[in-house]
Design a protein around this nucleic acid. Structure first.
Lengths: 258, 258
DNA sequence: GAATACTATTTCGTATAGTATGTTTAATAT
DNA sequence: ATATTAAACATACTATACGAAATAGTATTC
């Protein structure tokens, strides 16, 4: 069996690796949901979307079918697709309860099984978090949210359990949280008090106290895993999720009162 | 606002409720995977499938996109769809580990929150299990497997947490287990020893000891939930999954050795 | 015998037309 | 004026045919 070196040495012929259009469209629509180009609850017109993306209906239909399976879009037979509504307070709490069931375990396992590759990846991800902190405005929030998604997915992956990793990915929790936040953000225009609330929410989420609260919590988790301290990793993850729940609860609640 | 009674009294106009072809096809293909009409790892030709089911490619494409999202079918870009392979021993263990994370909690919550509707549903499901025991042969195994799927899904539903219920459903564990069993079953022809092994496996799974082992375990769980004894429900569910894991492990292992 | 060139098959996407259902508007009747 | 009915319109869903691009298999050449 050829070594990895020799394999890397010979010219790689498998270049094409062209992604299938259907997959690209899937990612594009997901992105449109993510950044509110498709608002929560908004109707999704297949034909219009196909025209807008300059493709035929076929790949759009496949993408929507997958998105429905993901729970990001709901289908009403013969009436069409709609982006799912924002999380209700109950759904929000349920989601975090679910995460509490699997993620502390995942962190514990990750600490037990992590190898050098995993440690390197964790360090790199924490670097990207610090980079994100230098951005400003909504873009920063998006960058931090994406770091958050990658960080948790990485740990689930290091845990070695594919079922757990998949189930985490499928929650799309970062997407839901980002939509909750942006929904509040977009209501800024409604009044000063709201604007202040949103700003406070943001500060509280990412820069409370001496700053970068969530990132600091990530740092604790990452360090515990790298040190292969499984108990510490579990408790740190548990604390982080509960802390994150408390930070986001006001956003979820205010939406419900609308 | 009209009461529920008056709403139920007037003739229901919402009769149409005609399912969309695309959804039917999805269920049909899933059923074909379930009963090995599409073998694990087999290639799935869209055109052939459309002809076989006597529909156009459009609904087949949507169905396959959803099935891929479910993890029941894998897509290789520009090469087509294939039914996913049987669970490897590792995947099998991972799946059960995942279930151990969420199902005991679900049972505990179910015991806390169950109402009369839930209790009635649980009793009805246990009745259907007894009915299934009267069937014979592979059909019995299928009937029992389907009861198993409904029973666990019901408890997840009673737990009240949609995220947990969804994540359980998406494991499609009953489908994977059934495929594992049938794969062994189909190898009966290979030799007497194998035939005996399969028979023993079956007996052990559903009729060990004084009989109906798994069903008895279900009964313990159901009774604990109905009695609203949450701790008992949790431990019973935990024991049941571990017991189930031990029963099925040989099947998963023998596949790996192939 | 290995690399290249050619052919066949298949996947993927497009385009378009037809049908069925939902939605809206307008007209009619109570 | 309200409610019911009917027609017009829009859209979702399905069918069908075609074409482009990649893969897989075969043959040819060195």
């Amino acid at each position: 069996m050829p070594s990895k070196k020799s394999a890397a040495a010979r010219p790689v012929k498998r270049v094409p690796r062209r992604s299938v259009l259907s997959d690209d469209i899937y990612e594009m629509i997901k992105a449109m949901i993510f950044d509110h180009e498709i608002a929560p609850g908004a109707k999704v017109n297949i034909d219009a979307l196909a025209v807008q993306l300059d493709v035929s209906q076929t790949p759009v239909r496949e993408a929507l079918a997958r998105l429905e399976s993901d729970g990001l879009i709901a289908k009403e037979p013969l009436k069409g697709y709609k982006a799912t509504a924002l999380l209700s307070l109950k759904e929000f709490n349920d989601l975090f309860q679910f995460r509490l069931l699997i993620e502390p375990w995942a962190a514990e396992q990750a600490a037990k099984l992590v190898d050098n590759t995993g440690k390197t990846a964790l360090k790199a991800e924490m670097q990207s978090a610090n980079t994100a902190l230098k951005i400003s405005g909504d873009d920063q929030f998006q960058a931090l949210t994406e770091h958050d998604a990658r960080f948790h997915a990485l740990i689930a992956s290091i845990s070695g359990n594919q079922s757990v990793a998949d189930s985490y990915e499928r929650t799309h929790c970062h997407l839901h949280l980002f939509r909750l936040f942006m929904a509040n953000r977009l209501h800024q225009i409604d009044g000063e008090s709201r604007a202040k609330f949103v700003q406070e929410l943001f500060d509280e989420y990412y820069q409370a106290g001496s700053g970068q609260l969530a990132i600091k919590e990530h740092d604790v988790i990452a360090k515990a895993i790298i040190a292969q301290n499984s108990k510490a990793a579990r408790t740190a993850m548990h604390a982080h999720i509960e802390s994150s729940l408390k930070r986001f609860a006001p956003a979820a609640q205010s939406i419900n009162k609308k």
